[in-house]
Simulated scan of single mutants.
Amino acid sequence: MPLLTLKIDADTYRGTREGVPNLVRLLSKYQARATFLFSLGHDHTGWALKQVFRPGFFQKVSRTSVVEHYGLKTLMYGVLLPAPDIGKTCANYMQAVRDAGFECGVHTWDHRVWQDHVRQRGADWTSQQMQRSFDRFTQIFGQAPNTHGAAGWQMNPYAFEQLEKFGIAYASDGRAMLADDGALADQAAGPHRLQVNGKTLACIQLPTTLPTLDELLGRSFGGVELTPANIAAHILALTATPRDHVFTLHAELEGQKLAPIFEQLLQAWKAQGYDLVAMEDYYRQVKDQQLPTVPLAWAELPGRSGEMIMQASSS
C-alpha cells in the first residue's frame, strides 16, 4: 500500500489556536495520521509586507486571498500589533495534539524571521534560532523533538549541521521538483540524504512531492482556472498512479477556510488506496533502504515566489 505522508505546518498564532484543533478533529474522523510542525516563538506575520519586492509576491497574494485566510489581525502582528509568543500562549493547544496521538515536531522559532533571513545568516545566528525552538519544544512536550520541517523550505548549511548535532534522524526541509501542472518532474524523487560541504548527513530528508493548495489555487491549466470547487480533482489526478508522497498543508488554510477541500482529499486518497501516515511512519519504512545522496540545491517552483531547498537529481 503506498504511503501518503501528511505534514502540517502551523505558522501563526491563529493557525495554532484555531486551525490545528480543526485539523485534529478532521484527521481523527478519517483515522488518518499526520505530523504537526509548530512555530514556537513569536508571530511576526506582518513583517511579510517586506516581501512586496520579491518576484511573484503580488500574484500569489491575489490568487490566495491572504487577508481572508490569515485574517487582518494576523497580518498586523509585528507591525501595528505586538507579536504574540505562540509557544508561551498556545502550549496547551500543542499538547492536545500529542495527546490525540499525533506526531509533533519543530517548524521554527519565528517563521517570518527564519524564512526571510536564514539563507544569508551565519552559524551563530542559525544555531541560536534553532536552539531556542528546540528548547521551547522540550519545555512544552517534556522531551526533545524527533523531527523538523523548515519554515518556507528555507535552510542553510549550518542549519543542516545543527540538525545533526540535535540527533534528528529524519526531516522534511525541502521539495521535489514539480512540472508546471504540479506533477513530479523526477519520478525518482523521494527520501534521500544530503551532502553539505562535502559531508553526507545522517538525517534522512522526506521532501514534499505534491504541490500545496496555495500554489495551485487561481492558476489555470488547460484553460481551466483552479478554484475551491475543482482543485481537489486536479491534485487527485496527480496521485492517481500509486507511489509514496508527502503533502504539506497549513493550519491557516486547510485547518480553516480550505478544510472542505482537504476533507475531499482525505476521502479520495483512501479510495485510491493510500495509507495516510505521519513522517515517523514514512521514516520507519525507508530508514534501512539504500537511499540516494544528493547535493544541497535551490530552485523555484510554479506558483510560489522565491527559491527554496530542492531535491537535486542523484548522480
Rank of each mutant, 00 (worst) to 15 (best):
S314M: 10
L4P: 02
P211D: 09
Q120R: 08
L3R: 13
R175V: 10
D181H: 09
L253F: 10
P302S: 07
G19H: 00
S314A: 15
I140G: 04
E280R: 15
Q129D: 08
L3S: 11
Y70G: 07
G152W: 00
L37W: 00
F141L: 00
T200W: 09
I8Q: 06
T239H: 13
L80F: 02
Y30A: 09
T74D: 09
P2V: 02
L296N: 01
D181W: 09
L258Q: 13
H107F: 02
T126L: 01
V113A: 14
D180V: 14
E215N: 05
Q115D: 01
D85I: 10
F166E: 08
R98L: 10
D9Q: 01
F247E: 12
P21M: 05
V113N: 13
Q120Y: 12
G122D: 03
T209S: 14
G87M: 07
R136L: 10
D181V: 09
R17C: 06
F134D: 00
L80V: 08
E252D: 02
A232M: 02
V246S: 03
T108D: 06
V66S: 00
Q154C: 04
F166Q: 11
A123Q: 15
Q205E: 01
Y282P: 00
G218A: 03
A91D: 15
Q264A: 05
Q129T: 04
E18D: 14
D110L: 07
H234N: 11
H44Y: 15
P21Q: 00
T74Q: 04
R219A: 10
M76D: 10
